[in-house]
Simulated assay, not measured.
Amino acid sequence: MERERFISINGRFLSSHVLKETDFEMAENYIAAIEHNHERCKTPQAGDVVEGAYYDGKFPYSNGIIEKIHEDGSLSICYQPYIPFIWLKKDGFIGMSVSGGPFGNHKTEELVLVEENDEAMFCDWGNCGACKDGAVNFIAPVRRWRIPYEWRSKTYVGVIDEPNERQYPISVKELGGFGNIASFWTMEQLDRFCKTLGISYTLMQERPGYREYSMSHNFRETKGFWKLEDVPAGCTPIKLLSNGSMVDGYFRTTEHEVEIYRPNPNAKAVYKPLSIEEHITFQRENGIY
């Protein structure tokens, strides 16, 4: 590993400590061991990168990591890991301590090789030992695997037949998320919203007083834009809620996502709220999103 790159990925360590030659040698030894295992074993190994999706395809991940191989040959995979600590075991393979999650167990035969020569970042305690900001990072060659899955939206519509007087009967939500993505008074408003965005929904379950639909797309909020030049080409104007007011925003529908672009409330050139009367009328006629 080049020293310049080694230094560049250890800014946090350098904020409190001084890198020494022993830190670089430690990283080089780890990298050599991982490269050796990479050559002698063509099957998934601890430290290899995995991409796939959990919760029945609703939550894709692209940089999961194989934490360990169990005695029965199954793999423990952390889907969204922090940089893992590693050590060398007696057999020459690496052991790992992984934080993050969620975790899942998978059979080796589930994994399909995507890239023979990828990279992953690891760490171990540096010359100062176990202390604040004392971990030294390094990058080593690994393989990238994929667990095939059928993509599914994590966005759904909940419809309450008899809401209370202050409650929207129709709400668009994200599994595991907080609050509503959009809220409507009538199914006609929901249909108009979906037609505008080019998306659809399908009935998933129904019980007395409640229905639930799966949406065809997820929603992704982007960082508030300051000027129109910040909005990507191909976006379509739409009225959106931003900082409590209805303003001119934009959306772009891709294969699986609706990207939402709202103006930053401090960007006066693009943040131009409707009047209170116009806001109330819009909300009554269209719902709010």
Results as ranks from 00 to 15, higher is better:
Cys128Asn: 08
Gly101Pro: 08
Arg146His: 13
Phe103Ile: 00
Asp91Leu: 02
Val112Phe: 14
His106Leu: 04
Cys131Lys: 07
Val142Ile: 10
Glu109Lys: 10
Cys131Gln: 05
Lys107Glu: 12
Pro141Ser: 01
Cys131Leu: 05
Glu119Ser: 01
Trp145Gly: 02
Ala120Met: 12
Val136Ala: 03
Leu88Tyr: 01
Gly92Arg: 01
Ile147Thr: 01
Leu88Ile: 13
Glu110Ile: 06
Ile147Gly: 00
Lys107Ala: 09
Trp125Val: 12
Lys132Leu: 15
Ala140Ile: 05
Glu115Met: 12
Asp124Ser: 08
Pro141Ile: 03
Asn105Arg: 12
Ile147Glu: 06
Ile86Ala: 09
Val112Lys: 15
Pro84Gly: 01
Asp124Glu: 05
Asp91Glu: 04
Arg146Ile: 05
Ala130Trp: 00
Leu113Ser: 07
Asn105Ser: 12
Ser99Gly: 10
Gly101Cys: 08
Leu111Thr: 11
Leu113Met: 12
Thr108His: 06
Val114Ser: 08
Thr108Cys: 06
Phe93Ala: 00
Val114Ala: 12
Pro141His: 09
Glu119Tyr: 15
Ser99Met: 06
Arg144Lys: 15
Phe122Val: 06
Gly92Thr: 13
Leu113His: 06
Phe122Pro: 04
Glu116Gln: 14
Ala140Pro: 02
Phe93Val: 00
Leu88Ser: 04
Glu109Arg: 07
Phe122Ile: 08
Glu119Met: 11
Ala130Arg: 14
Trp145Thr: 09
Glu110Lys: 13
Ile86Ser: 05
Asn105Cys: 10
Val98Trp: 10
Ala135Gln: 15
Gly129Ala: 05
Val136Asp: 04
Asp91His: 13
Ala140Trp: 04
Asp124Asn: 09
Asp118Asn: 14
Arg144Asn: 02
Phe138Pro: 05
Lys89Glu: 09
Val114Phe: 13
Asp133Leu: 15
Leu113Phe: 09
Gly100Glu: 05
Asn127Trp: 12
Gly95Thr: 09
Phe93Asn: 01
Phe122Asn: 05
Ile86Met: 09
Asp118Phe: 15
Glu116Asn: 13
Gly129Arg: 12
Glu109His: 14
Gly104Asn: 06
Asp91Cys: 02
Lys132Ser: 11
Lys89Tyr: 12
Pro102Glu: 07
